[in-house]
């Protein structure tokens, strides 16, 4: 019978009408993001040793930082900027950080009204209040063990 296939297909649609709704009411309800989410950035300036590995790891040269030597002849950060318009969000900078002070956050609404706001000045605004992502961070157990070793 011509049209049998159409009716068969329609039965699938019919069954799905009564299934659980899968969509999220996005702006009202925020989505559950993965723990390793790669969204915004945060920088713990106090922990930074200004080694510049993140700058060198970046494939697209999106990170610029300047340093100076302090009284104890140690390198110190003076400026730190990530230009998000060049950023691939590949995570190589976060993986490269030896002190784990450059971290991803779980922010995802990163659109801005002005072009200048796309550049993140992480030296002035460390963004430490944003929920941190565990991407490339040592697991808590290993972190505790390392502290005991010290």
């Amino acid at each position: 019978m011509y049209g049998k296939g159409l009716l068969k297909g329609l039965s699938v649609t019919g069954r799905n009408v009564f299934r659980k709704r899968l969509t999220e009411k996005y702006p009202e309800e925020k989505p559950q993001l993965a723990a390793r989410w790669r969204g915004g950035f945060q920088l713990d300036v106090a922990g930074c040793i200004a080694c510049g590995l993140c700058e060198r790891a970046c494939p697209n040269y999106a990170i610029t930082l300047t340093t100076e030597k302090n009284e104890e002849n140690k390198k110190q950060l003076t400026t730190y900027e990530i230009n998000q318009s060049y950023c691939l969000f590949c995570g190589l900078c976060v993986e490269a950080c030896p002190k784990n002070c450059l971290r991803f956050t779980q922010e995802f609404e990163t659109a801005t009204y002005h072009k200048e706001e796309v550049k993140l000045d992480l030296f002035k605004n460390q963004n430490l209040s944003a929920p941190a992502s565990i991407y490339a961070q040592p697991e808590k157990a290993t972190e505790a063990a390392r502290k005991e070793d010290k």
Partner: peptide, 25 residues
């Protein structure tokens, strides 16, 4: 996204293996 933190541009494999082990989720 549980594994790599991203939905489409994963950057998950590395020369010599994979970047991170499986996540509990």
């Amino acid at each position: 996204s549980h594994l790599s933190g991203s939905r489409m541009t994963f950057n998950y494999l590395r020369i010599g293996g994979i970047a991170h082990d499986l996540h509990p989720d």
